[in-house]
Design a protein around this nucleic acid. Structure first.
Lengths: 111, 111
DNA sequence: ACATAGTATCTTGCATAACAAAGTACTATC
DNA sequence: GATAGTACTTTGTTATGCAAGATACTATGT
C-alpha cells in the first residue's frame, strides 16, 4: 500500500466519467483519448483504456466507426449513443455530489 | 453497466482518503466511520470497510486499541500512525489535483 | 435462566476490472 | 524489404468490492 497505488485508485473511479466527457465533444479515437487524459494528469495505459472502451461499447453507451488514416493503421472513431449521453448526464450529477461529499468530510476535519 | 454501478465505482477511489480523513480527527471505531460515510452520501458496506481497515492497519497507516463498551461488544478504536499522517497529506494533494483534472476536462467539454 | 434484539467485528466466495506485457497489423520511409 | 511509427487487441495476474453469513458481546423482557 504505497502512495502511488492509492493515487491510482483514486483516479480509477472517475476514469469512465472523463472518457465519456471527452467522447461527448465529438468523435475521437483511442490514442487521442489517451493523450487527453495524460494531459489532464489522469494516468491511464492502453491495457486499461481499450478494454474499458469495449465495455462501454457493449453497454451501448458508445458506438464507433472505422476510418482510414493517412499515417498508419485505420482508427476506431467513437461517439456517444443517446443512451451514453443520458448516462453522462447522470455521472455529471454524481461527480458534483461526490466532490461535495469529500469536501464536507474535509471541512469537518479542519474544525 | 448501469448508472448505479458507475456511481459506486466513482466513490470507490476516494474511500481510502475519506476514511483516513475521518480517523485523523481522533480515535473512532468502524461503525462510527460507517455512519459518517453514509452521512456524507458515500455508500459503503461492512464487507468493504472492515477488510480495508485491516489492510490499512497491515500497511502501518493505522493502529488500534480495543476498548470496552457499555452498550455492546468491545470496539476497535483506530488512530492514524505517523506514517498514516504523512500518507494522508499526500492524498490531500492527490485529491486536489484530481478535482482539478476533472474540472479541466469538464471545462473543455463546455467550450 | 433463557430468548430476543441490538451492536460490533470478521470471514468466505464470487465477480469485476486494472495493469503489465506481449502480440497483431497497417503505413511510411530509407 | 527492413525499420520505425501508429493503433488496436489479448492474456494472465492481482487486487478488491461486495453480498451473505458467521461470531460474539450486552441489555432487556419474561
Amino acid at each position: 500500500m504505497n502512495l502511488e497505488n492509492a493515487q491510482v485508485q483514486m483516479r480509477k473511479g472517475i476514469l469512465e466519467y472523463c472518457i465519456l466527457q471527452i467522447i461527448s465533444r465529438g468523435e475521437v479515437y483511442a490514442s487521442e483519448i489517451l493523450d487527453e487524459l495524460l494531459n489532464a494528469k489522469i494516468m491511464v495505459v492502453e491495457g486499461t483504456l481499450y478494454p474499458l472502451l469495449t465495455r462501454l461499447k457493449n453497454a451501448e453507451l458508445l458506438d464507433y466507426q472505422w476510418k482510414e488514416s493517412t499515417s498508419g493503421p485505420p482508427r476506431k472513431y467513437y461517439i456517444l449513443t443517446e443512451k451514453g449521453t443520458s448516462f453522462l448526464k447522470g455521472l455529471d450529477d454524481t461527480w458534483i455530489e461526490l466532490a461535495e461529499s469529500v469536501q464536507s468530510i474535509i471541512a469537518k476535519t479542519q474544525n
